[in-house]
Amino acid sequence: MRAVEVDGSPASITGLTSALAEALGGGPAVLPYASDALRDAMEPTRPAEHGTAVIIATSGSTGEPKGVLLSAAALAASAHATHARLGGPGHWLLATPAQYIGGLQVLVRSLLAGTTPAAMPTSGFRPDDFAEAAAPLLALDGPRYTALVPTQLGRLLDAGGAGLAAARAFDAIVIGAAATTAGLRERAAEAGVKIVPAYGMSETASGCVYEGVPLDGVHVELEEERVCITGDVLSHGYRLRPDLTSEAFEGGRFRTSDRGRWSADGRLEILGRVDDMINTGGVKVAAAAVERILTAQPGIRDACVVGVPDPEWGEAVVALVVGAGCDVDSLRAACREEAGVAAAPKRVEFAAELPLRGPGKVDRTAVRNLLRRS
């Protein structure tokens, strides 16, 4: 196994791309990392599991280190299906950390397309840096793509100027790692930015459902609302954790931790995590449903809803929102009207931004701890 440190520098991206090319061709498995603790948790001195090309080390939603095992075939299947959906192989801009699956797949897609990816600093997203990194790529012929998280897209839309102009010039921008709110979709459409919201995870070698439609070769089933996925894009397990592997992967399918439903036009809608239900006074409230209502209100850019211990209700529904000029009573009334009395947050607090874990994922544990302290 080859552990490759990824610090966002051009040299580290070049080194990772070279190691990745060898792994896809049958060479040593690659463990990209930015955290020494996660690297050590993967025990890089021990041989990689059979058939593994890449190990994605992640702390997961629980904070427990896990290593997702991906074969060369799974990575290639995801890359080819993505190109088929977007409009063919093209040139990619790396704008998210390459130790995570979203960024790593930008490198895989570029390798399989025979193109050289452009890259921007990943130590802090600035619209001007995005425009500068994109300029050489946008001068090339053929499809031009990038992958962003919702927070990055929001910053481009807020800033306008050269960054937004560059975003408009891409043939497609895949938006992943976190849910794309209806408000963000509308803002992107009004600004002329062509986004493709994607759903997926490390275990599916990146996004496997685009705009609610599974990629070619991917099949989605709902098991009592739980999203279950089969297809060539799947991981074959977790690093040194046969117990987690047998629990999540059974009969050739991956049982996710997400709840979903089919819309009237046959598209997959993600309702939130299986474990994000809040039991308040004996009534179960889906945190994701309340978040969708809040982010649909004027002035609200983002929201995270969690349950905190409450002596009267067992759990109280509370919300941390990003926005300005918002009336708390109006926000609570909207939730009460659309989802029932129990869904109205007992408390709403405001922040300049939500705490994040990884590339654009909201750190729900940090939000819960913050709201419990307050």
Rank of each mutant, 00 (worst) to 15 (best):
V4Q: 12
E5A: 15
G15F: 08
L16Y: 07
A19K: 07
L20C: 07
A21V: 04
Y33C: 09
L38T: 06
D40S: 14
A41S: 15
T45R: 14
A48Q: 06
T52D: 06
V54A: 08
A57C: 03
S59F: 02
P65Y: 10
G67A: 10
L70C: 10
A72D: 11
A76P: 03
G88D: 11
G88F: 07
T96A: 15
A98F: 05
G102C: 04
L107Y: 01
A119D: 08
P121I: 07
S123V: 10
P136D: 10
L138I: 07
R144L: 08
Y145G: 08
A147H: 13
A147Y: 05
L148S: 06
L156A: 02
G163S: 04
L164Y: 00
A165T: 12
A165C: 02
A167S: 05
A169V: 02
V174A: 13
I175L: 14
G176N: 04
A182D: 15
A182K: 09
A191Q: 00
V196A: 13
S202K: 04
E203D: 11
T204K: 04
S206K: 02
S206D: 14
V209R: 10
P214A: 13
P214S: 13
D216N: 13
E223P: 00
L234M: 08
L234P: 04
R241P: 04
R253K: 14
G260M: 05
R261H: 10
R267C: 06
I278Y: 05
V285Q: 08
A289W: 02
E291Y: 05
R292K: 13
D302W: 01
A303H: 03
D310A: 08
G325H: 03
C326W: 00
C326Q: 13
A344F: 06
L356E: 15
G358D: 11
P359H: 09
G360P: 05
N369M: 13
